[in-house]
């Protein structure tokens, strides 16, 4: 980035930015527009930007398809998986960072590299023996495979970046290692924790495969429920788009508000103290 930019170059840069932005936003815009249209209007390619305010799709999503319960299910599972991922992952990340256990860290990463589908049949057998199919417990436990390694891997460089004199002085004042971790290190790790939990939450929120196999009628999550709009001989495009907006909105809102933290968190680890 040079500070002096010729006006022509600046125009081109702006044009480029808006062009790319337009390309990225177009599907999103289409989704938003389509959610207010009827099936016939959606399929008409000549009047893409014609808007008639029609909230039937949204009303249907809640009334006919009962989306509130799916939203609640998704929320419980994602929040639970993130919370327990943090409880397990933060001390793990801290020990890996403090004692330089790179091999151990790699081992955890392997859990993410192995395709999730290979866990499914064993899990299904175990959980059905434990009578845990279609309960939040099995879903939260399985989603922790998504959230925990992620949290650990974001937090390792973050903890490495914190000045370790802080911990040492706490130890001098009589703290144990766990005590120093909880009382001194955790409170200053806010940005890292926020980043990793938001992203972990989003990954769990969007997870499809584990929920498909382990959830049942009582615990169906949003990514499965959205397929209710597709049936054998009919695709309810309007409903599908309205539901997509509803699924995307919370994630979008969280991401917008937490954007500052995410950037601080993601770059935080790279600057060594």
């Amino acid at each position: 980035m040079s500070e002096k930019q010729s006006p022509i170059k600046s125009i081109f840069t702006h044009f480029g930015v808006y062009f790319v932005l337009f390309l990225f936003l177009l599907p999103f815009l289409w989704m938003l527009l389509a959610s207010f249209k009827t099936q016939v209007q959606i399929l008409n390619t000549e009047k893409i930007f014609e808007i008639t305010a029609n909230f039937n799709n949204y009303i249907n999503v809640f009334k006919e398809y009962n989306f509130l319960s799916f939203i609640w299910n998704s929320f419980v599972v994602a929040a639970g998986a993130t919370l327990f991922g943090l409880i397990l992952g933060l001390p793990a990340a801290y020990s890996i960072a403090k004692f330089k256990q790179q091999g151990f860290g790699l081992l955890i990463l392997v859990a993410r590299i192995v395709p999730g589908i290979s866990f499914l049949i064993p899990w299904f057998i175990i959980f059905s023996k434990l009578q845990l199919i279609d309960t939040y417990t099995s879903l939260i436990l399985s989603h922790m495979l998504v959230t925990m390694p992620f949290i650990i891997w974001v937090m390792i460089p973050f903890f490495e970046g914190l000045p370790h004199e802080l911990e040492e002085s706490a130890r001098v004042d009589g703290c144990s290692i766990p005590g120093a971790f909880v009382k001194v290190m955790l409170p200053i790790s806010g940005p890292g924790i926020v980043t990793s939990s938001i992203l972990a939450f989003i990954f769990s929120w969007n997870n499809f495969m584990f929920s498909l196999i382990l959830a049942g009628d009582n615990t169906k999550t949003l990514p499965i429920a959205i397929f209710n709009f597709l049936s054998y001989s009919e695709i309810n495009w309007g409903g599908l788009m309205a539901a997509s907006v509803i699924i995307t909105a919370p994630v979008l809102v969280i991401a917008l508000f937490a954007q500052r933290y995410i950037i601080a968190g993601l770059t935080g680890g790279s600057v060594k103290g």
Partner: peptide, 18 residues
């Protein structure tokens, strides 16, 4: 803790068919 949550949540959802 996870164990605790387990019993909590399974009472939250419908109990498995017994």
């Amino acid at each position: 803790l996870a164990g605790c949550s387990g019993s909590d949540s399974s009472t939250g959802s419908k109990a498995p068919e017994k």
